[in-house]
């Protein structure tokens, strides 16, 4: 199964019953997968929307009724969705947004890229909010983390973004789907008609500044809890490492390939791979800097996660950067050459 299809299948297995999307390369296989499979499961709704904006608002509406929901797109389409993502954050509606990143800015190109890191991790739309951002690096993680994303979205009642790129979306790897957790989402948050009871309203408009401030702080406290409890990361061969590459998603795969080469030449290189980009696993990274003083951030961008690494390391270590923006995908040997130069320069 291609990565796009894995996300779709994992979502359906996790109980996603509403999907809306609009065609854009390189995530079309996911929309097509949902078109083929969503309508064959009980209660499943697939809607091809008239736009990305409609799609995100459709999933917001469906989410409000208490259904597990997902939409997907690629970079320019995700820009369009920001209105709805901000709105879902404000209204505390759970939902999954998949971004199969491509080269930017603007229309850019349809090659794999990681240029949407800032947009994803800083909220992306207007207002004081965050989305949980998960960056899988293997087919198996696409399956597992997509399922987990639904649980996180429910737990914290907020949009969760799966941030992958064209390569993750197109690549095929063997995958084993795990059993999904039973859903725990209280009925009191669902909008299904008032019956004989009191009517509910879901809204993000709060005209009174005191109430609005309270709402913002409430959201901020929630984000704080998430930051403290939900970081995910992988450490790869860091125990004896003298230089650690920091990379996520596809870049981390390339980095692992490079590390294999470098290790065979006796260079002690490791990898720190954030799996959640927000919350960024900054404490773990900082802890690493107690014994490792050289880091190299590698991204398929001009340097976005780089800023989070700087914030995390707070000047306690040297940070180098290698980036390939705009849809360029480096090979492991290219990265290995860059890393070797840095490694040798440091005279480690």
């Amino acid at each position: 199964m291609s990565g796009n299809n894995v996300i779709g299948e994992a979502a359906i297995r996790a109980g996603c019953r509403f999907y809306a999307g609009y065609p854009i390369t390189p995530q079309n296989e996911l929309t097509e997968y949902m078109a083929e499979h969503m309508r064959t499961v009980e209660g499943g709704v697939f809607l091809q929307s008239e736009s990305e904006i409609a799609a995100i608002n459709m999933i917001a509406g469906a989410s409000a009724t208490g259904v597990r929901v997902m939409t997907s797109s690629s970079s320019p389409g995700i820009s369009l969705k920001q209105e709805g993502i901000s709105s879902m954050a404000a209204c505390e509606l759970p939902g999954i947004i998949v971004n199969i990143m491509r080269g930017g800015p603007g229309l850019g190109n349809i090659r794999p890229s990681q240029g949407d890191y800032f947009q994803a991790t800083r909220g992306g739309g207007h207002g004081d909010y965050r989305t949980i951002v998960i960056a899988p690096a293997t087919g198996q993680e696409l399956a597992d983390l997509t399922m987990d994303a639904f649980d996180l979205a429910d737990k914290y009642r907020m949009p969760v973004m799966i941030l992958a790129d064209g390569m993750m979306g197109q690549m095929m790897e063997p995958v084993i789907f795990k059993k999904p957790n039973p859903r725990q989402y209280p009925e009191k948050f669902m909008l299904r008609g008032a019956g004989t009871g009191k009517s509910k309203f879901i809204h993000g408009l709060i005209l009174d500044p005191i109430d609005s401030e309270a709402h913002n702080w409430k959201l901020a406290r929630k984000y704080q809890v998430i930051a403290e409890n939900e970081t995910l990361f992988e450490e790869h061969r860091v125990d004896d490492a003298e230089l650690v590459i920091v990379a996520y998603g596809t870049s981390a795969r390339i980095a692992k390939g490079a590390i294999k080469r470098l290790r065979s030449h006796g260079m002690k290189i490791g990898l720190f791979r954030p799996i959640t980009l927000w919350p960024f696993p900054e404490l773990k990274l900082r802890a690493l800097s107690a014994k490792i003083k050289n880091f190299l951030v590698f991204e398929m961008s001009t340097g976005q996660m780089l800023e989070d690494v700087r914030l995390a390391l707070q000047g306690y270590a040297n940070i180098e950067f290698h980036g390939r923006p705009g849809g360029a995908v480096p090979t492991p040997s290219e990265l290995a050459n860059v890393v070797a130069r840095v490694y040798n320069k440091k005279d480690l």
Partner: peptide
Amino acid sequence: HVTYLPAYGA
């Protein structure tokens, strides 16, 4: 273990 990566696009 296998990976399959198609080249697509242009």
